[in-house]
Design a protein around this nucleic acid. Structure first.
Length: 528
RNA sequence: GGGCGCGUAGCUCAGUGGUAGAGCGGCAGACUUUUAAUCUGUAGGUCCCGGGUUCGAACCCCGGCGCGCUCACCA
């Protein structure tokens, strides 16, 4: 139907390669709309892997829209909020209350935070807030809602009908103990509300019901439709694939076996598995898996504190099938890679642009801003300039890029903000002001007088000369020591900016005040 | 045990069949009447090993070696 599937140029960006697989799937199963799914477990808050998955899927969607603009697409963020709670998370309030509801669907447990209709609703809200921050276009669906509204009913009845075939697929993968009680259908107790992992006593295909022993031992019959049962999770996944006819869903390497199993199950249900690429996991600095509970690696909040969403997108774009270390040092590199690609984009033709990461990151519409300095340079600059004031930092930036302004260069302006946060968190804590020696004290007092005597509007060069003269007058063996003394007593660092430029930007009266504070001993021990 | 990934400069890594690269670090220099920054130049590789395919292989195939992750209970 579409010869696009036949031309997959070597070296083409991976989202296009995935999109072509979707086109091939469509050729086998023609339909009007393509369904992209990302799934979310109920436990825990969104993390960097969550973001990576949804952003990467968006990139494939972007490529697909380019290949087949006539076909509608839908990206569904699906929350498995009907899952029974197994253990109480350690990071929530009201643990005792939640503990009373173990085994129940998350949407049947009161919100321990007291804000939402249920714990599940709370987690869903967190997830949506999270996704909304990135401007990613998606549609949210709740498992509880979909089960109850009967969206899955037809497929659930098919599961009931083909129960034994599904069990035959799953059983060989289970341990001996679990085999005894296994059923892909988990009834929800009408009495306790808990999701039960119990053997089914009877399956009534015609009636669409199952019979099981409830927790109190009484034989109970419930329909498989309308949210009275929940599917065991691998089957749940497969059932969803079948019910929605999902075309594309990515997953981490830890789910390789689950993808295989669910693919088999979806075939039993008469469906076809989606294109389901496996991506590698994120590793920390030492090459170990990033885990929320261990708190290693980098969180998404940390990344976004020091760099932009787009730079994170750059990280996510590159080689998803490769394990990547995610720790602080990779941020500047990805930021600068992003800026480099953004600059290159403007010079590229239409074909080259579609291989450029920024085309995917910005959904085909990257900004046109010219960013004259790199993030790496800014990080150096902010440490050298020794300031947390954006105006001062901008002053230094202007020396490199005379025409840049915060208004005309919003990306650069945001970089200034990120650099300052970096300064506050990494540079400032290491600052240690020391008291001046007698020699230095005399020179600093001289500096105050000299600066005060300067004509109004003295430029950086003139100030620099005067600072230098002060050093000469006070017999430093090397003038290097004089400047070093100023950095150590005024800034708490052994290195600093060119003094003339700094004073011109920072202000002569302000500098005098700073020196006086150093002389009075007010800076010693500050900002540790 | 199964699966997946990785192995390229001192470090971190790009590089999917066509002259081995970048950043950082090193060294030398320029500029700045300090430093940092900036700029220029430069050194540094058995592309893990062995075979194969090819006119041509870091890249594709086969076989090794090494490192790491992951699954096997639950989701």
């Amino acid at each position: 139907m579409n010869d696009a599937t036949d031309r997959a140029p070597a070296g083409e960006a991976w989202p296009f390669q995935e999109a072509r697989k979707i086109l091939a799937r469509l050729a086998r199963r023609p339909k009007k709309e393509v369904f992209f799914e990302t799934g979310y477990g109920p436990s825990g808050l969104p993390h960097i892997g969550t973001f990576g998955e949804v952003q990467r899927v968006s990139m494939v969607r972007q490529a697909f829209r380019d290949l087949a603009p006539e076909i509608a697409t839908r990206l569904v963020a699906f929350s498995d909020d009907m899952d029974g709670l197994r253990k109480v998370p350690g990071n929530i309030p009201n643990q005792a209350m939640v503990a009373q509801h173990l085994g129940k669907p998350l949407t049947s447990i009161p919100d321990p935070f007291g804000k939402y209709e249920s714990f599940g609703h709370h987690n869903n809200a967190m997830l949506r807030d999270f996704l909304d921050r990135f401007g990613i276009e998606y549609e949210f669906r709740s498992a509880t809602d979909q089960y109850k509204r009967g969206v899955f009913d037809a497929t659930l009845l098919k599961v009931l009908e083909r129960h034994d075939e599904i069990a035959a697929v799953v059983l060989p993968t289970l341990g001996a103990e679990r085999k005894e009680t296994y059923s892909p259908i988990l009834p929800i107790s009408p009495k306790s509300g808990r999701v039960l992992q119990v053997p089914l006593v009877e399956r009534k295909v015609d009636a669409g019901t199952v019979v099981f022993r409830d927790e109190d031992g009484t034989l109970t019959e419930v329909p498989v439709t309308g949210g009275h049962v929940k599917m065991q999770w691998k089957c749940d996944w497969a059932m969803r694939w079948a019910a929605f006819d999902v075309d594309f869903e990515m997953s981490g390497k830890d789910l390789i076996d689950s993808v295989k199993l669910s693919s088999q199950i979806v075939r039993v249900l008469g469906g076809e598995p989606p294109i389901a690429p496996i991506v590698e996991l994120f590793l920390d600095e030492k090459g170990e898996k990033i885990s929320k509970s261990r708190g290693n690696g980098l969180t998404i909040e940390e990344w976004l504190k020091y760099a932009s969403t787009e730079s994170l997108g750059m990280f996510m774009f590159h080689a998803p099938q490769r394990a990547k270390k995610l720790y602080f040092d990779v941020i500047p590199k990805n930021f600068d890679d992003y800026l480099g690609q953004l600059a290159a984009y403007r010079e590229q033709d239409a074909n080259a642009r579609k291989q450029n990461p920024v085309w995917f990151i910005h959904q085909g519409k990257p900004p046109a801003e010219d960013v004259p300095v790199t993030f790496g340079l800014l990080l150096n600059l902010v440490a050298a300039a020794n300031t947390d004031d954006p105006k001062v930092l901008w002053g230094f930036v202007s020396r490199y890029a005379p025409n840049a302004t915060p208004e005309a260069n919003p990306i650069l302006d945001s970089m200034v903000g990120y650099a300052i946060r970096y300064y506050l968190d990494f540079v400032l804590p290491d600052k240690k002001h020391r008291a001046p020696t007698d020699l230095e004290r005399a020179a600093l007092e001289d500096l105050v007088k000299t600066l005060a005597a300067l004509p109004a509007g003295a430029d950086a060069e003139a100030i620099q000369n005067q600072v230098y003269e002060v050093g000469k007058r006070h017999g430093f063996t090397s003038l290097r020591d004089w400047f070093k003394a100023m950095y150590e007593t005024l800034f708490g660092q052994s290195a600093g900016p060119r003094m003339g430029s700094f004073i011109a930007l920072y202000g002569v009266p302000e500098t005098i005040a700073l020196v006086r504070r150093a002389l009075a001993g007010e800076l010693v021990g500050e900002a540790v």
